[in-house]
Design a binder for these strands. Sequence first.
RNA 1: CGCGAGGUAGAGCAGUGGUAGCUCGUCGGGCUCAUAACCCGAAGGUCGCAGGUUCGAGUCCUGCCCUCGCUACCA
Length: 684
Amino acid sequence: MSKRYTITAALPYTNGPIHIGHLAGVYIPADIYSRYLRSQGHDVAFICGSDEHGVAISLKAKKEGKTPQEIIDHYDALIRSSFEAFGISFDNYSRTSRAIHHKTAQEIFQVLHEKGVFEEKTTAQLYDPEAKQFLADRFVIGTCPICQNQEAYGDQCESCGSSLNATELINPQSTLSGAKPEYKETKHWYLPLDRYSEFITKWILEGHKNDWKPNVYGQVKSWVDSGLQPRAVTRDLDWGIPVPLIDATGKVLYVWFDAPIGYISSTKEWAEKIGKDWKPYWCDSETQLIHFIGKDNIVFHCIIFPVMLHATGQYILPENVPANEFLNLEGQKISTSKNWAVWLHEYLEAFPQQQDVLRYVLIANAPETKDNDFTWEEFQARNNNELVAIFGNFVNRVFVLTHKYFEGRVPDLKTLYPEDNLTLASLQTIPIQYSESVEKFRFREASQHLIQLARVGNKYLADTEPWKLIKTDPDRVSTILNTALQLTTALSILSTHILPFTSEKLQKMLRLNSKIDLWNSLISGKELLSPNHQIEMASLLFEKIDDAQMDFQREKLKNTEKGAASISLSIAPEKPNIDPKVFNELQLKVGQIIAAEKVPKTKKLMKLSLEVGQEVHSVVSGIAEDYEPELLIGKKVTWLSNLASRTLKGVESKGMILLGENEEGKLVFVSPEDSNTHTGLDIN
RNA sequence: CGCGAGGUAGAGCAGUGGUAGCUCGUCGGGCUCAUAACCCGAAGGUCGCAGGUUCGAGUCCUGCCCUCGCUACCA
């Protein structure tokens, strides 16, 4: 029976291009699922769009001396075209900067406001008087009151790991202008999540205990157990959707309030274009709503957005939120700022017409249950050993044999032997297993069922050996090749979701004209190609990828990483001049490390014994992530000796070892002769 | 620190109480229609560690270790 589905894929944020992590985590699974549902005859709206609001874009614009509009136009165009070229089959890809979205988001805000859902609160927040802006915690830096790190953020000190309030920082500074933030009162609207705790508990914790993924369920449970808090849904900012109330000038909707509404406005835009009613896709309880996201988005899609939808009293809730974990690249976290990524638009240029290879590799190794690693070595191996050797080679064998023995016409099916029946049976059983996997969002498993079908084909040919029988029993060969051709056709149907470009090419080679109901013919065991049907000459579906190409990609990664490093090799801004007396108050000495050990239960802290003249002092330093204890022994360092002692994690620390942070984010000791340092390095 | 997920052959994964499995890689053999492709076979695991429950534990319980993530702006 045909059902209605609304499938959403996380809105990409338009401050950077799309990389393989986005694809493996969200877009390829969502695309496969949508294509699958369509081939089953379901009514599918596969919805996405660019997320174009928020502080990050406004900041990036300021930094690059552009307008936010220029930034979003650039990335929206890039993202849009690379999705298109990659075959992500969105029914609509919109933008949150469009009028229809502004209107939709404001309407939903209005509805919630009129229903009295929001709480209004006036609080004092940090304000930058020079930039004339309120500051998010992240945009205030200052000295950590706990470890004296001078670059602690308003919410957390990354050196000692303590969580902080921006108010606790010593000498707070705005990262926008360098000005000293002051307090200013401001009014905001809060979504009282705490009042919906029971709703979330019943709906997810009780209702979806067994059908949602453990990582998603666990995350939600963790939020609910720790007590949901009211959350502000407005911000004082100049970039975003204006809050549609008279007493809210200068305020915009919080980006996380407006972004998920983008799914709805994108659906509206699509429905208008094709003359449909959008409402059933969001308001009809028969519709299945599925959100594809990455794990960092769980709270928004499982708690905040559903509460918003629920509170309006008009919308349906997601049936499932199959969030994936993260993909690493060559053993390291993918990082946009460090340029450690494989960008989709660059892949498309480097590997033209090979979209399916990346689709296959990423889905075969999708981070479904835990973080996974993408390596070019694996990319090459999967292409050469699976797509080329198993899938492509089987198809090629069948085409070559059919032309060699039957002039490219499908031969008759004569007497069926047990091995023929066995093979034909798998044309039904494998698609059924494949379907089960897809319906459970187990795409990695589904890709293995697909390749399994090609394996069955290779084995069938190896077992029956038609090239030997042709001399003695041409009738038998006729049956074998008919069977092999049915299998090839089945392969072209089963691969439509994961390998859409390949599937299309193969169907052209087979001259498969009617595309209607291919899936049904497949699982009902109908004859897929009739005798005497003429097929095209063989052409290769996949090509081998050689070592040189892979070396080139690996080299490129290294170089772009270096390139990014040289850009970020920035010189810290000058601080105001100080009185020489202040400097004289600092006591700096050279010390030598004579012992080092990690402080237990911490990530970064290392306990060092420092020999200074005749004395030995104990100093705790946040360098454990960058240095092995053994390598530190014997090292001479610059030591600030008259900093008041303090105790970190139960270990007394006297003074402070001077360190700089280099372009790779690695802490280096201040020894100007060292190759790790560069001129202009900020010492602290 | 708290919370969540993960830790199973060289690599990537499946396996929720009953003789440890799949794919890739490795080694050996077969085949020659095919993109030096394909098919068969073998080697390779104290299932993170330590206790416990049970006739029986990868699977349940307890403690610990390691990796990743979340802690409210990175998929």
